[in-house]
Design a protein around this nucleic acid. Structure first.
Length: 678
DNA sequence: TCTCCTTTGAAGACA
DNA sequence: TGTCTTCAAAGGAGA
């Protein structure tokens, strides 16, 4: 699992984004504690990183918070060239107060938070935040710098290419997967497997937290004026407040150095995570009431406006009462901030509450997920560090996070998801009716339920990530189709399923337990495509097998049509449930293709009931016939003669029997035998 | 247009 | 902990 702060990931947290907070009621006695402030800043940052990681590694917040924060791994940079990172000596972790700490809904009482920069190569004393625009020692960074920083974080600094709007997946090969080391797999298939394996879904899950963290870090470049453009500055204006009251031009007390800081009055009801709040208190960094927020920082990673709470902010606790976008908290007037006294025009309902932009400014400033937004000339779906393309990148995780929230917390969905990237993994069901009709029909429970259903339908369906086998099939299906004149996916899947079947899965079968041989098969699987006359009627209509359902899984054979043994009744439940001959025979039966070898002709004369697995092999009768060039290849084990000890388990299915009589006594794969029959 | 088929693997629910 | 269910992909085919 890629770690954001892995050994090589020291650059994940550019400390030019460090923040410190001032708590209301606390005096700024820390003005003389510049040195400690610097440490606090790093602690805040590192604790944030730590928090994000503990969130993904452990669901226990209390446990995570009791854990002392590790030494800061992030390199602190100030006014550096883009991509430059100045290492900072790790500071000893400050012990945290013991004991569990409840989840805090720390609503900051209206002060502005002042962002400070610990130091500046230009010689300005810390703390201050050096505006990229104003710092002479630092050229104006590219507007895409957040994307580059994000890219560096995603790949742990390994990615040397241009900023990639990609996904923070680092493919970890699952060496235990049967689809990887198998020599029969094509290099492409192996490559695919590097994207999959057992780590696939876990990565898919845990990355959400990283995405959340990175999203928080990327969200706030909206307030960034580092580009220095007038558009960017004007874009700072909160959409809710076109008044310039939110934007305060320097100089202000925090800009004692005279450089060109940018400020705005923060919303009165920011919420902050527990860890951050503690760090804020620890660093005595909460600002005084009414003091504008110096936003000369690129990011404010841990503070979130409750009205703007994005579902991707699991680190942020919030109050439900604040959650309806555009609706101010009931205890807060809509137009005046009771804490700062600053007029705050109501938030226009037609403007997305998630991005404090006026519509006209959209597109002029970096997208908060700019590292996800495809850049010109860059692919939408990125290549990860190893060059492997992940089929379910961040876009999926983003929405996966959304899915954990109730519908009212999920932002409006469009065909393009939050990142604006149409992703195949995100399936937005077609909305046939507007849910607004619920206003009229809310009196009727049925309509209410309908609206609920519609809301559920509107929720984007996040497809599950493909497991290794799915990826394998996806890769190999085309080959099978190319090699065979076979188009039916079901048959192809049977072929591929036999190819990639996991041996371990077979070994896991215990004697006496129901194994694949006893696994009920539908008519289709039992009799194959070429014997559809033997199928039950629903099966013939491609519906659910009636016998399969009614017969508790056993597809009773229809009367023999030609009197051949092949049409003899398949194993009855009693037969299938009969005491196992031995474990190995069971194992052999679970390898239908291995049974296709007939080293001992006498074994075929056995009158043992045909294992359904063998009959299953018949299901691909047609497929095998259409694969004369060995597309229906067998796993290496299946190509070997059956072990003598398993002779008792040697199949003597009627089909095999008849086949063997036709095909002679030479060991042949069943597919070939079947073909000879054809 | 919807559903089914068919495979393996993974996750979640449940006993 | 074990079992069961569901769902990922694929495309043909029936209803």
């Amino acid at each position: 699992m890629p770690q954001l702060n892995g050994g090589g990931g020291d650059d994940l947290g550019a400390n030019d984004e460090l923040i410190s907070f001032k708590d209301e009621g606390e005096q700024e006695e820390k003005s003389s504690e510049n040195s400690s402030a610097e440490r606090d800043l790093a602690d805040v940052k590192s604790s944030l990183v730590n928090e994000s990681e503990t969130n993904q590694n452990s669901s226990s917040d209390s446990e995570a918070e009791r854990r002392p924060p590790p030494a800061p791994k992030v390199s602190e940079i100030n006014c550096l060239e883009e991509g430059e990172y100045a290492p900072r000596a790790p500071q000893p972790p400050e012990p945290l107060p013991p004991g569990p700490e409840p989840v805090l809904r720390a609503r900051l009482p209206a002060p502005g938070f002042r962002l400070r920069l610990p130091s500046c190569p230009a010689g300005r004393p810390a703390p201050h935040f050096c505006a990229p625009l104003s710092c002479p020692a630092r050229p104006p960074p590219s507007p895409r710098r957040p994307a580059m920083l994000a890219a560096k974080r995603q790949d742990g600094g390994l990615f040397k290419g241009p900023p990639y709007p990609g996904y923070p997946f680092i493919m970890i090969p699952d060496l235990t997967s049967p689809y990887l080391p198998n020599g029969s797999l094509s290099p492409t298939a192996r490559t695919l497997h590097f994207q999959s394996g057992s780590t696939h879904y876990s990565a898919y899950k845990t990355i959400e937290h990283q995405i959340a963290v990175q999203y928080l870090q990327m969200k706030w470049p909206l307030l960034d004026v580092q580009a220095g453009s007038l558009q960017s500055r004007q874009a700072l204006k909160d959409a809710r407040s076109p008044s310039p009251a939110h934007i305060v031009q320097s100089p202000l007390p925090c800009c004692t150095q005279g450089h060109d800081c940018q400020h705005f009055y923060p919303p009165s009801d920011f919420t902050v995570s527990t860890q951050v709040f503690r760090d804020m208190k620890r660093s005595h960094s909460l600002q005084k009431v009414g003091e504008p927020w110096c936003i000369e920082s690129n990011k404010v990673p841990v503070v979130q406006h409750p009205h703007h709470v994005h579902p991707l902010t699991p680190l942020i606790t919030y109050s439900n009462e604040h959650f309806t976008p555009g609706n101010p908290p009931p205890h807060l007037p809509a137009d005046v901030d009771p804490k700062t006294g600053i007029p705050r025009p109501p938030h226009p309902p037609d403007i997305s509450p998630y991005y404090p932009l006026s519509p006209g400014t959209v597109g002029q400033i970096p997208h908060p997920l700019g590292w996800l937004v495809p850049q010109q000339g860059q692919p939408v779906y990125p290549i990860t560090t190893g060059g492997f393309r992940h089929p379910y990148p961040t876009a999926l995780t983003v929405n996966a996070s959304m899915s954990r929230f109730p519908p009212h917390m999920v932002p409006p969905h469009h065909t393009l998801h939050t990142t604006g990237i149409p992703h195949p993994a995100i399936v937005t069901p077609t909305v046939k009716q507007e849910s607004s009709q619920s206003d009229v029909g809310s009196l009727h429970s049925s309509k209410h339920q309908d609206s609920k259903k519609e809301e559920e339908k509107k929720k984007p369906h996040i497809k599950k990530p493909l497991n290794a086998f799915m990826l394998y099939m996806k890769e190999m299906r085309a080959k099978v189709v190319a090699e065979c004149t076979l188009k039916e996916s079901a048959a192809i899947n049977q072929i591929l399923g036999r190819r990639g079947k996991k041996k371990k899965r077979k070994r896991d079968k215990q004697p006496g337990e129901t194994n694949d041989a006893n696994t009920p098969k539908k008519c289709r699987a039992l009799f194959g495509l070429d014997r559809q006359t033997l199928w039950c009627k629903p099966c013939r209509r491609k519906k659910k097998c009636v016998r399969y359902i009614q017969g508790e899984g056993s597809c009773l054979s229809p009367p023999s049509s030609d009197g051949s043994l092949l049409d003899s009744p398949p194993p009855s439940p009693n037969l299938l449930g009969s005491p196992p001959r031995d474990a190995k025979s069971q194992t052999e039966q679970t390898q239908p293709l291995s049974l296709s070898l007939k080293p001992d002709p006498l074994a075929h004369l056995s009158m043992m009931p045909p294992p359904p697995a063998l009959l299953l092999a018949e299901a691909t009768h047609k497929a095998s016939a259409l694969c004369p060039n060995g597309a229906l290849d067998l796993p290496p084990t299946a190509l070997q003669p059956a072990a003598p000890s398993s002779s008792v388990a040697q199949p003597s299915t009627s089909s095999l029997h008849s086949h063997s009589s036709l095909a002679g006594t030479q060991p042949q794969p069943l597919s070939l035998v079947t073909k000879s029959l054809e």
